[in-house]
Design a protein around this nucleic acid. Sequence first.
DNA 1: TCCGTCATGTAAATGGTTACATGATTCG
DNA 2: CGAATCATGTAACCATTTACATGACGGA
Lengths: 191, 191
Amino acid sequence: MGPSGRMNDSTKTTTAEALLGMLSVGAKSGYELKGFIHQSIGYFWNESFGQIYPTLKRLEKDGLVVATEGERSGSKVYALTEAGRERLRAWLGMMPRAQVMRNEMLLKLFFGSQVAAATMRSHVAQYRDQRFAEVQTYSGIRARIQSRFAGHPALPYWLITLNWGQIEAEALLRWSEETLVTLDAMVEAGR
Amino acid sequence: MGPSGRMNDSTKTTTAEALLGMLSVGAKSGYELKGFIHQSIGYFWNESFGQIYPTLKRLEKDGLVVATEGERSGSKVYALTEAGRERLRAWLGMMPRAQVMRNEMLLKLFFGSQVAAATMRSHVAQYRDQRFAEVQTYSGIRARIQSRFAGHPALPYWLITLNWGQIEAEALLRWSEETLVTLDAMVEAGR
DNA sequence: TCCGTCATGTAAATGGTTACATGATTCG
DNA sequence: CGAATCATGTAACCATTTACATGACGGA
């Protein structure tokens, strides 16, 4: 399997790296970063202002980004420095740490026998509606970015992450439908 | 779609509810809870000792659980009280809040154009191996619990959550395989 | 006796969200 | 002029992980 496989040096705080990554696409203000993150990687990542602004200051102090005056008074536009780009590349080379996820809906479902089946059915129905909406969104995004970023070197990677979201949403939509059938039978059976 | 749909009363701290749920299956010590959580819902939930012990004390103070002496000296076995079971049921009835997930591997992939395609290939290969191992695990678990808990009222719900994990793992395994093909082509093309 | 596991706990650090405070600019 | 949006920041709070400290018990 090749001589690869550097260990994770436990470079914590991925918020910094997420911001560096976003700035590698182009210079942005803190406010713009939030919106950009939301509409591009929002389905698997998010950041809040309370996290963005302090992190940006820290990155500037460390020389990984430089701030220049924005058009509005008091607004700042941040750009990646060479050191920042280097840091980003180093982080990209490290093995991603496996993440610990928490799914509240599944937790409830696991204890489902404690309440009426109809209760769990409504939770799963809501979950299905969310997955359905997601699937719809993905086809829209795909069409838009494929024409808007044709030829862009990052496009293949953006489509790969988009595929991830779409395949996951479709799979969980199928699970939802199957599960609703099971739960309907249980509601019918009256337990 | 029926008259259901209570809003989430923002009852934070689901750790408490996770523990109440686990205790609804049977009385356990803090130590046992950790192991039980790991091997039953470990693929979508986890708790650490630093969280379990203080939470258990709080639940006891609030009268939601009662502690009795365990067999070993100093060990405590916690059991759900009627109030605890009531609290659990109330929580199960509330709509699960949508969760904000963070996937570090996808974040790196999104910025993949900043480094060699081979780097991203190795990340995805690791991801694929993890999903593959997961799929293997699930079929093992299914066989075990289906015979061990035949007739148990919670079994249908346990199988439903297990299905979720299996369907997700299988879908992401497929995504990994597809993505590896794409990345191999990009490595070949030398960019 | 020593190791591994069972067992409980605390302290510190971390990472993150939420709420709040403030103000500029744009558009109807 | 007022509302929406653009824009920056801080403080408080919260949940969670990690590391550490301690000790009982069983078996090799």
